[in-house]
Nucleic acid binder design. Structure first.
Lengths: 387, 387
DNA sequence: ACTTCTCCTGCAAACCTTTGCAGCCAACGG
DNA sequence: CCGTTGGCTGCAAAGGTTTGCAGGAGAAGT
């Protein structure tokens, strides 16, 4: 029923190879012929069969995206950006949700491996060694994790955590708590490491509470422990937990920010909607999604075709596999959930510490529509480390 | 490099067709042989090449899912459920985001058409006629819309809107407003129709405000108009708008629910987290995702293979294409954003009207993990109308 | 002992494209 | 007028799998 290349060839009186070239290498075919073919194709509603193309070229033009939990509002912007970026490059994105289950991650990589040109592994909870092993099966780009030898794009939460701690100590807090995230999270380790260091520098105490599930519930459940810790300010693994914590503290009769300050991480859309509005570390999720797609595509672009007739093609000298690791900057967004602490300097009014980020449109995703500049993503990432 | 069926055949000393059958029709091959083949396959890490399979069977085992805006928290649970259901059936989900742009919808259907076995069209904004036309190109299941002749799964927002209006009038509100959603939305029309009827029945006035963008911003922007309308209670197209509206009213100095009551639709996770907690109409999004996948798969299961050698296979008598339309029930969840109105009976205390749904776990998605019961989705849908 | 089955396996075509190679023609330089 | 070049086009193989058909071996029925 659907028109094939042969139908088009017949209709336009040329050989199928000419039709093929009309689409995949237009410069090789006479403009006149080309137009005729194009017209016939249009006429018949012909669209190249990607399965057949994939079979011979060895490239599926599909990308797998493995996510811990789509329902976590942190991910949708990333997905959206990745999908849009991929589409521009004529790729499609397979999405898969692991429900925060490390075993599911492995299964999914296997399941996707033969069907995609590469996989984006987002905040994986697997072990490094397993990730490395899987990367021999299919090109991988890791997001929010550093695995030696693998291309990665990470958000600099370490820096963010430092900024957050400095913000809090600057407000006069001396007793801090860190609400940890899930076990196995690279991000969690980074935050902890950086927050601990920053607290020490500022001569403040920091209690680490966790690990916890990275959800609102995880935050609610820890309210009591946070109170007992005696901390006057807490940094949470992510916004969801921060919001949950505020909720939990509220039912304990503790007011935020008057009694206790709370800082989240991620700057999900939701953090602007709760009361109080959440002070948080903004992570460039959309940029991360775009960048990851770009890295994957550029990376396996150098593979060229792994198939092709004789297969005897000489591998290009460019086989050095530049596995870059890109670090995206984060930034502190001060809103209403942080206030002065016990050791605050007298001349510092609480209100002075609150100022939302100026011109940030509510959920605009620059570059997700049409004309996105490919250089855009990396332009936002001054710090690029090639390994 | 990757092992092919031929490698396995060689290793196990059988013909490739036997290997093929070992995977696609195990009952046709001698258990002893089968085990040997399986062992070799395992050994070589063989996985069937889906492109090749798709090429000959004509079935890609992929499903397209077209969504207006992944960042809208209404969709992730649906996506998640669909993905999990599809995976159980050995299908993968392509995801695509239209940015609420009707033109993008059409493009995406075309782009996906040749690459998937069917497309799930979620809350499409296109015209009915265009949808019908596209359905001739690729099997379609529509979600949140009714198109004659096409399989659809809709959530009964009409009923939900009625319940919401009854709830409000029962609380003594006589001046209602409806905060409309986006143009082209079937859901929006249903809500409007049903709310209007319910208001008339209860002898209340209802002002329709809209259309508006279905976002928080859309709600905020309408606060002033809502105030001017003189309504003491308002039903919003979705939770996001309701939350935005509350925010907007707040900055106008109007308190919810004391000064004005607000009801949302969808029961997104967020509606439990805002202050006040949102009274809303819960829509079974996860069930919708599962059901839609099931309908698509059952539906085009009857196509059998459209390819196959001679192609002369007699079409089964089961060609009647039972295009069912499934309606999923909605339910009113009363929380804190609605209170008594001017015409309230004296004996009705405001507090009596608030009661959250009992045991609803924060974001649990029953059936999204492993053992989900296939009958589950339809079990939740007593009302099935075959057209 | 011969036929008739049943079970299993092998054979080879077909699915739709891509692509290296070779051939054709016209134009051009000498 | 011949050789060469360059621009297009055709030819045919290859990619990995599925599947109708046919054939072989053994068992069962007569």
């Amino acid at each position: 029923m659907p028109a094939t290349i042969r139908d088009v060839a017949r209709a336009s009186g040329v050989h199928i190879s000419t039709v093929s070239r009309t689409f995949s290498a237009p410069h090789l075919v006479n403009p006149e012929t080309r137009n005729r073919v194009l017209a016939c194709a249009e006429n018949l509603g012909y669209r190249p069969n990607r399965a057949a193309r994939a079979l011979i070229t060895g490239r599926t033009h599909n990308i797998g995206l493995i996510i811990a939990d789509i329902a976590n509002p942190f991910f949708p912007p990333l997905i959206k950006a990745a999908e849009s970026q991929a589409r521009q490059r004529d790729y499609h994105i397979f999405i898969a949700d692991t429900n925060e289950d490390p075993a599911a991650e492995e299964d999914l990589v296997h399941a996707l491996a033969k069907q995609v040109d590469g996989v984006l592994l987002c905040s994986p909870r697997m072990s490094n060694s397993l990730i490395e092993q899987l990367s021999r099966e299919v090109p991988l780009v890791v997001i929010n994790r550093q695995v030696t030898g693998l291309p990665a794009v990470v958000m600099d939460v370490g820096q963010g955590a430092r900024l957050a701690v400095e913000h809090l100590t600057g407000l006069g807090h001396r007793e801090l708590a860190l609400l940890g995230g899930p076990r196995g999270s690279w991000t969690n380790r980074e935050i902890r490491r950086s927050a601990t260091a920053a607290a020490r520098t500022a001569d403040a105490a920091l209690t680490v509470l966790g690990p916890n599930p990275p959800t609102e519930g995880g935050g609610i459940a820890m309210a009591e422990q946070v109170r007992r810790s005696g901390a006057t300010a807490v940094l949470a693994y992510n916004d969801l937990m921060a919001i949950g914590l505020i909720e939990g503290l509220d039912s304990l009769g503790l007011r935020v920010p008057q009694d206790i300050s709370v800082v989240g991480i991620d700057d999900i859309a939701l953090s602007r909607l709760t009361r109080p509005k959440l002070t948080t570390v903004a992570t460039p999720t959309a940029a991360a999604g775009r960048t990851a797609v770009d890295m994957l595509l550029q990376h396996d672009g150098s593979f060229a075709a792994r198939a092709g007739r004789g297969g005897g093609r000489t591998t290009t000298a460019d086989d050095r596999r530049t596995t870059a690791q890109v670090t995206l900057q984060t930034e502190l967004v001060i809103r209403d959930s942080t206030g002065v602490g016990p050791a605050a300097p007298a001349d510092r009014p609480a209100a002075a510490a609150t100022a939302d980020r100026p011109g940030a449109a509510p959920s605009a995703d620059p570059g997700s529509r049409g004309h996105a500049d490919p250089g855009d993503a990396t332009a936002a990432t001054p710090e690029v480390v090639a390994s």
